[in-house]
Computed example of a mutant assay.
Amino acid sequence: MRIILVSGPGSGREAYIKALREFGVAFDVSESLLDLSEMHNQVRCNGFIIDVPTLLRSGAADKAEANLLMDNFPVLRINYNASSGIRGIPSGRFSGTSGDLKTFILESCNSFPARSLRGTKRANKVLNVILNRDLNSPGSQIEKSVTLNFSTEGGFFFSVSNWKKGDYAWIVVKELDDKTPIKSLVQWVVPWGRLNHFPGIGVQFLNISNQQADQIDEFIRGKKELK
């Protein structure tokens, strides 16, 4: 289990670090939400602890980043006072109801699967892809498709074929430099004919390479043009 603490320098951060060490939990420290996005984007963690004064000093873009965290991770907003100690407010659907730091870590974070911050960021952009049910199958098992949205951990792909949850797909993305097929697991299916829905499959990437994930992240953040 790994926790990321977001806190500027001061007595509060020292108290938080002391408590985390006493709990024996692995953790990283980020001085700001901006630093978090730039320096810890690929770190897989089980939750975030955010110092309230640090959050209040943040700009609008950083506060939007905090909202993204609350939507996708266990998050505890905490404050430190020399007389009353550390007090917390759980924030978001994964964070439980206890404001106690130890309870938050042992219950909310310990039960949450580790994921990276960049994996929560999704783009509603079109990539051209090939869906293959079996790498050893004939050409009839191959389907041309496009993404409706994607992240470094998966995406939703247009399809009118007969897929079911639990199927495996091997996906080749035309726009990626590394065109090694990405083994993926179908997590949900939207069948053709459902009102106001695109038909397709939502998949989880199982063996995406670092090069592929880095390039997808660049597409999402607009640092690399789609060609």
Rank of each mutant, 00 (worst) to 15 (best):
N124F: 12
D100E: 13
S11C: 06
A61E: 11
R57N: 10
S140H: 04
N136W: 03
G12W: 01
V126T: 14
N132H: 04
R13P: 12
K227N: 08
Q215C: 01
P199R: 13
H197K: 15
F157W: 04
F150L: 15
I50R: 02
L206E: 15
K18D: 09
R118H: 03
F157N: 14
S145R: 10
F156Y: 14
L131V: 10
S58H: 06
E218A: 14
G88H: 07
C45P: 00
I216E: 05
M1L: 08
T97F: 05
Q212I: 03
G12S: 15
E31H: 03
P113S: 03
E225S: 09
S108A: 15
S145T: 08
N41R: 10
S58L: 06
S98W: 00
V25Y: 06
G119I: 04
E65L: 06
V25E: 06
L76A: 07
L101W: 00
P113Q: 01
P191E: 08
N132Y: 04
S184K: 09
F205I: 09
P9G: 06
E31R: 11
L68T: 01
L226Y: 02
R221V: 06
L69M: 10
F112A: 11
W170Q: 13
G166A: 05
F23V: 02
E65Y: 01
G200R: 12
L226R: 05
F73I: 04
K102T: 04
S30L: 03
L131P: 00
G139F: 13
V75I: 07
A169S: 13
L117K: 04
P181V: 05
A82W: 00
F157Q: 12
M1F: 02
F48T: 00
Q215G: 06
R93C: 05
K165D: 11
P199N: 12
L148K: 15
A66L: 03
A15P: 06
G155N: 14
T120I: 14
S11D: 13
G10K: 03
Q141R: 03
A26K: 14
D28E: 12
Q204T: 08
R2W: 02
C45K: 01
L117I: 09
K179N: 10
A64H: 03
K121Q: 13
F112M: 12
F219G: 13
L148D: 07
E38T: 01
E225M: 08
E38V: 01
D167C: 04
S32C: 03
A82G: 00
